[in-house]
């Protein structure tokens, strides 16, 4: 397993911002880059911990995933679903045109 050793630069910030669909203003990029590097350097402390025989922990709850019965208990609330939308038309959400 690779260990934590990474330096974020502006191209990386651009790539990550693109993945997260976040516009980052040019003037803020350097500061953000520095912040990310500081945080990543801080969390790199974890390298000190030997986790070779440790299973990852995703949830602290001890119980099993509950299963619900297959019943229609929801829906037909089109108005509520659309109520807060910035733009709708004849029951649809509307977004800028998508080209597939």
């Amino acid at each position: 397993m690779s260990s934590i050793k990474s330096i974020v630069d502006i191209p990386t910030v651009n790539k990550i911002a693109r993945l997260a669909r976040l516009e980052i203003l040019e003037k803020n990029k350097q500061n953000l880059t520095n912040d990310l590097n500081n945080i990543l350097e801080f969390v790199a402390q974890l390298n000190e911990v030997d986790t070779s025989n440790v299973e990852p922990l995703a949830s602290v709850t001890g119980h099993k995933l509950p299963l619900r019965n297959d019943e229609v208990t929801d829906g037909n609330i089109g108005e509520l679903v659309l109520q807060n939308a910035p733009e709708t038309s004849s029951g649809f959400f509307v977004v800028p045109k998508v080209i597939e």
């Binding site: 397993m1 690779s2 260990s3 934590i4 050793k5 990474s6 974020v8 990386t12 910030v13 990550i16 911002a17 993945l19 997260a20 976040l22 953000l32 912040d35 990310l36 945080i39 990543l40 969390v43 974890l46 911990v49 986790t51 440790v54 299973e55 990852p56 922990l57 995703a58």
Partner: peptide, 27 residues
């Protein structure tokens, strides 16, 4: 900032080193 960090630690090539490592230490 947190979205950026979170996206970074889950991204391809870094997941094991950050996210998975963190889950192990969380245990």
């Amino acid at each position: 900032r947190r979205i950026m960090i979170g996206t970074y630690v889950l991204s391809s090539g870094y997941y094991d080193a950050y996210y998975l490592k963190a889950q192990k230490v969380r245990r």
